[in-house]
Nucleic acid binder design. Structure first.
Lengths: 174, 174
DNA sequence: ATAAACATGTAACATGTTACATGATTAT
DNA sequence: ATAATCATGTAACATGTTACATGTTTAT
């Protein structure tokens, strides 16, 4: 059973508790989005495919929610999720436009510091969100480990951007 | 003139010297691939589009290479490249499957250390390549700055993977 | 001769984003 | 009533990967 990574985001969350596509998106936006983003355009079709494959099952909707469809993980789904977890992870993909700009800054050297500062600003914004999340106390266990990674890595990157921007400003073109 | 990032990889390299799609790929595989990968399937069609838009121009092929088509940057291409460099960079996209596995490791806690070790091994391999590149002495100026980023960031990540794997092994489930 | 490296290109597929359309429920 | 939020879904588009097809040049 070969699934795309987004499918595993869904399976992973359903392993916590039954939920709807809307819930998956809301939780992803507060957590996995920092290292694996998703959108409704992926989640809803994927939930259908997973249901067709028998890895998730629509929960009988109890009174109230009309349009709402909650799904739960099936035994097969849980097995597929565990198999994926045991597999060596695929190589990290990075798409860092700021780095690309610094790399090619030879064509306009005065722009390099701006690219570094843009990256730093973006990281500070991300850091603020991650710290809010951390002080909420909600992430525990493995999710908290990943949150700490996000915070510490971002801090390292911010420091690097500051250091290199300073160096470039002082030394001029490297 | 809105172009995709891959187009700027091409323009950036042509700003160094005229070259073919094959050259762009070979150089990207030794440099930008660590923060922006490309493939022939993108490069050749993109070169055509850039030529159609007048941002690059096929060089008159001198004796020898038959099929070989070298392109050079036009004045318009150079202007578009500089405009892009001056623009604030788009947010960083990360797709880190190893982190996803740690995040969802609650469903199979014994797999978390394996995901961390997989990530560490991949990083060590990347580090070896980056260090070889560094000791070649070829990257200078802004490209060397980005290379140092790759090396130092990877070292930080390796240390983090080791530290957390150790913690998980000692403390058991977090 | 033949293998390796050089070189270009396309088609099928996978993945992901954005914008739009639609309607129900809940709080003010 | 009405605005906000909850909720589902699709279509068009953008981007990117992989596998394949094809031929040339250079070194052994």
């Amino acid at each position: 059973m070969e699934l795309n990574p987004t499918a595993y985001v869904i399976l992973g969350m359903l392993a916590w508790r039954p939920m709807s596509g809307y819930d998956v998106k809301a939780i992803a936006d507060q957590s996995t989005r920092f290292f694996w983003a998703t959108s409704y355009g992926q989640i809803y079709p994927e939930l259908r495919r997973l249901a067709a494959a028998g890895l998730v099952a629509a929960e009988p909707q109890e009174g109230g929610g009309r349009g709402r469809k909650a799904y739960k993980l099936t035994d097969d789904g849980a097995r597929v999720l565990r198999e994926w977890l045991a597999q060596p992870p695929r190589p990290l993909e990075m798409r860092d436009e700021a780095l690309l700009k610094v790399f090619f800054a030879g064509s306009a050297p005065e722009t390099a510091v701006g690219a570094l500062e843009g990256k730093r600003r973006e990281l500070e914004a991300k850091l603020a969100q991650l710290r809010t999340l951390e002080s909420s106390g909600k992430p525990t266990g493995h999710t908290a480990v990943v949150l700490r990674y996000g915070i510490e890595l971002s801090e390292w990157m911010v420091a690097w951007c500051e250091r290199e921007a300073k160096r470039l400003r002082e030394e001029g073109a490297p």
